[in-house]
Structure formats: C-alpha cells, structure tokens
C-alpha cells in the first residue's frame, strides 16, 4: 500500500505530507515554549529586583554560542540548496559543519552549566548575601546546599551494604566571595551609588581572597542550581529543554547525513524532502535560542 503525497506535493495544498506534519508539530512546539516564556514573564514580574539574579551568566560565551547556532542554520540551508542543485558532496560538507556546530553548542553549554553548579550564594542570618566559590580540600565544591552542611548519615541498601558513606556535619568552610553581589545593581537603580565595576559579570570582576565562613551564621546556602531562585529555575528549564531539542535535531540530521544517505541513490526527491523537514526543525530550535539569549543573558 502506498500513501499518497508522501513524496510529491498534493496539488491543491502544495505540500507533501511530512512538511505539513512538521509544521503542525512546530505549532505545538511554539505553544510549549510559549507556555514557558509566559511563565518567565509571570515569574519575573512577580519577583523583586533583589531576588532576580542579574549578570551571572557569561555574556561573551553566550554570544559566541548564539553565533554558532546562527552559523549552523546557514549551513543547513546551504546544504539543502546544494542538494537541490544535485551537488551531493557540497551538501555533505555543509551539513557536517551543521552537526559540528550543534556539538560545539552543546559542549559550550555544558561548560557553562558546570560553572554554575560550582558557584554559590549564601544568605547570612544577619541579612547580607554573598556569591562566590566554595573550596573543599583544595577543589571546587559541587552542588552544596543548606542540607549538605548538616551532614548526612550513611545510605545503606536492603542488605545493609553501605551505598553512600556518611558525611560529617560541616561547621566551617572556605569561601571566596565575588567582588559584587547581583542585588547591588538593583540598589543602584534605586539611587544608591554602586561600585564602578558592578556592570561587569561576576567572572570578570575577580574574586576576593578566601575567607572562613561559619555554618552557624548561614540561613540558606545554594549553588546556582534550579532551586537557587525562580530565575535559575526557569533558566535551567528553558535551556535544558532547548538543549534537548538541539541534541535531538543533531541526532536526526546526523542520521540523515550518515546511514540515511542511501536514500539519495534510490529516491533523491524524498531525500531532499527529509533535509528540508529536518532543516525546518533545526530553524525552529535556533529561533528559540534567538529569543532565549536576550531574555536570559541580557535582561
């Protein structure tokens, strides 16, 4: 049984099935990301300026990643155009760049992520707050939170074997605070003078020397993980979901580029259609980033 218009376009609609299918799918994707963007707006409007971290992301890296994605969109289209002119080798070259761009984007993103997981904010009991890094045995500490300081008993499985050894409570630890806190900027807009370098991102502004911090003085401690604040919650949710889309897109494009390329010999028209459909998806993914970048990094 042959399903009509799988390859050729239906004359009255001008579309082949997969193109319509991907557009419908993208419509739902628009609603998915639309829901999250709306949530961003709602959360942001509800948040006070001190509780909406600002300037904690690395703008140069973000900008670079943005251009990586824009470049990948360009190569997708040029690859498709090359294939339309029957130039398979050229298509292969362009599309290889696309795939590399995708992988590059993801690696850079994961470096950014790990940066965040080792960067902390402390809410002290006296009301002041500091961001910075925690050092443990000369290494950066990952994923600490208030509970980590209290220590934890050993975790045992059903047979009584120790799965995770007990961790002792921590009374004091080494902390190298950043020069400024993001809420300084908020104070500044209220008319208070602020340190001159407050506009630089936390990374650029360097760190003060390490100090000892007593657990007893701490109200709350959190790495820059989703639980840190609604800002990081929506940041990680949006970028992780977007990253997942990048990954899926890259896998699909790589499949069509590699093992799926046999189709070029047997049914070139359908093969070109596949490039177009995957390219449409890819453009959507990139378009999402074009919106994500300013609202997460700049605003």
């Amino acid at each position: 049984m042959e399903i009509p218009y799988n390859v050729k376009s239906r004359p009255d609609t001008g579309l082949y099935n997969a193109k319509l299918g991907i557009w419908l799918f993208l419509a739902s994707e628009v609603m998915l990301f639309g829901g999250l963007f709306t949530s961003y707006v709602v959360l942001r409007v509800n948040a006070s300026a001190e509780n909406w971290p600002h300037g904690l992301l690395n703008i140069p890296i973000g900008t670079f990643n943005t251009f990586v994605l824009i470049a990948s969109s360009v190569t997708v289209v040029l690859g498709w155009a090359a294939l339309k002119m029957n130039n398979f080798a050229r298509y292969r070259k362009f599309q290889a760049i696309t795939i590399l761009c995708a992988l590059g984007f993801l690696s850079i993103k994961s470096i950014e992520y790990s940066d965040k997981f080792t960067h902390y904010e402390i809410w002290f009991k006296d009301g002041h707050r500091q961001t910075g890094h925690i050092h443990q045995d000369g290494k950066k500490a990952w994923f600490w939170n208030t509970k980590t300081l209290a220590g934890a008993p050993a975790v045992k499985d059903a047979k009584g074997n120790v799965v995770k050894p007990a961790s002792p409570p921590i009374a004091e630890f080494e902390f190298s605070p950043d020069a400024t806190h993001y809420s300084d900027a908020a104070k500044h807009t209220k008319g208070e003078p602020a340190a001159a370098e407050h506009k630089e991102s936390a990374h650029a502004s360097g760190e003060h020397a390490a100090v000892k911090v007593k657990t007893a003085d701490i109200k709350r401690l959190s790495a820059f993980v989703p639980a840190h604040s609604t800002y990081f919650a929506i940041y990680f949710t949006l970028t992780a979901l977007h990253g997942l889309h990048v990954l899926i897109g890259a896998v699909v494009i790589a499949y069509i580029w590699g093992p799926g390329a046999k189709l070029w010999k047997t049914n070139p028209e359908q093969y070109v259609n596949r490039i177009e459909v995957s390219g449409l998806f890819w453009h959507f993914v990139d378009l999402v980033w074009i919106f994500l970048f300013p609202i997460l990094y700049l605003l």
Binding site: S28, E29, M31, L32, F33, G34, G35, L36, T38, S39, L43, V225, P226, A227, T230, A233, I234, F236, T237, L241
Partner: peptide
C-alpha cells in the same frame, strides 16, 4: 496540550529539584 506539558515539566522540577515555580 503543550502548555500543560510545560507546566508539568515545571511541576516536576518543583517536585524533584526543589524549585519554586
């Protein structure tokens, strides 16, 4: 459905990762 999916993802974050959406 997709906005509910978005909400479900956020609720999952609340439940599993301790966020406060």
């Amino acid at each position: 459905f997709p906005p509910l999916e978005a909400a479900a993802v956020m609720q999952l974050m609340d439940k599993v990762f301790g966020t406060s959406f």
